[in-house]
Structure formats: C-alpha cells, structure tokens
C-alpha cells in the first residue's frame, strides 16, 4: 500500500478526472430521467476537458501570453519552460464547443420526446411504447 501513496500524491489530477468521468458515466447508464442522463453526459465530457487541461500544467510556468510592447524579433529569447503548454488549451476550446453543441441538440431532442410522450422518465416512455 505504501508505494501507492506517492503515486496518488503526484498524479492526483488523473484520479480526479477519472472519478468525475465515472460519475458521469454512471449517470448516463443508470439514471432513469433523460435530463439527468444529459447532465451525466456533460459531467463525462467535462472530465475529459479537465484531463487535457491538466496535461498542459507545468511547475514554475505562467500563462502562455508573451510580454507586450516588444516588437517581433527584438525581444529577449522566449524559453518554452517559462510558459505552460498552450496546445491542450486550444484543443479543449474545441471540445468545450462540441459539448455545448451536443447539449443543444440533446435538449432539442428531449423537447421533441416530451411533446410526444409528456414525460421524461425513460421507464414511463418505454411503457407507453409497449402499450401502443
């Protein structure tokens, strides 16, 4: 057990994202209400965003925006170690947009389902479908 403690302490970012992701997955599979499933889907996607952003972190580095005022070519050399990794942030901007878009379409579908069945509980909808 002892050897796992440093593992946990130095890599806690992964543990956090996995926990969140599994909460989302659980909600998507086990919840009965369609809106709760959508909430689970969002937690699931956000966990992945958290994972990517945590990749970009670097000890002793600052946000990836260079100093103002210096014309290009004249400033002191920029060291990559002084700035955090910008790429995961760029990728996650895309993933955030995708999750917003998915959320919008999912809610539109839920409204259509509600218009037809007047309920959002999955078991009640399936009951109605069996009867018809």
């Amino acid at each position: 057990m002892e050897e796992y403690i440093p593992l946990f302490l130095t890599k806690y970012n992964y543990w956090v994202y996995i926990t969140l992701m599994m909460i989302g997955l659980w909600a998507m599979i086990a919840k009965n209400n369609l809106v709760k499933k959508i909430v689970g889907m969002n937690i699931f996607q956000t966990a992945i965003i958290l994972f990517y952003v945590s990749i970009g972190a670097k000890y002793g580095a600052t946000i990836p925006i260079l100093q103002h005022g210096s014309g290009h070519g004249h400033e002191a050399a920029v060291h990559a170690a002084d700035y955090i990794n910008p790429l995961p942030h760029v990728l996650m901007l895309t993933a955030i947009v995708v999750s917003v878009a998915t959320l919008g379409v999912a809610l539109a579908l839920v409204i259509k389902i509600h218009q037809r069945h007047r309920t959002l509980e999955e078991d009640e909808i399936l009951e109605q479908l069996r009867e018809s």
């Binding site: 699931f44 579908l109 037809r116």
Partner: peptide
Amino acid sequence: GGRAPLASLNYLFLGTI
C-alpha cells in the same frame, strides 16, 4: 416523427460516449 427522437437521443448518448 414517432419514435425517431427517442432513437436519436439514444444514439446521441452512445455516440457521445
């Protein structure tokens, strides 16, 4: 219409996963 939105929502859940 009909059952398509529910089928599509299920596809959306699994597709998103």
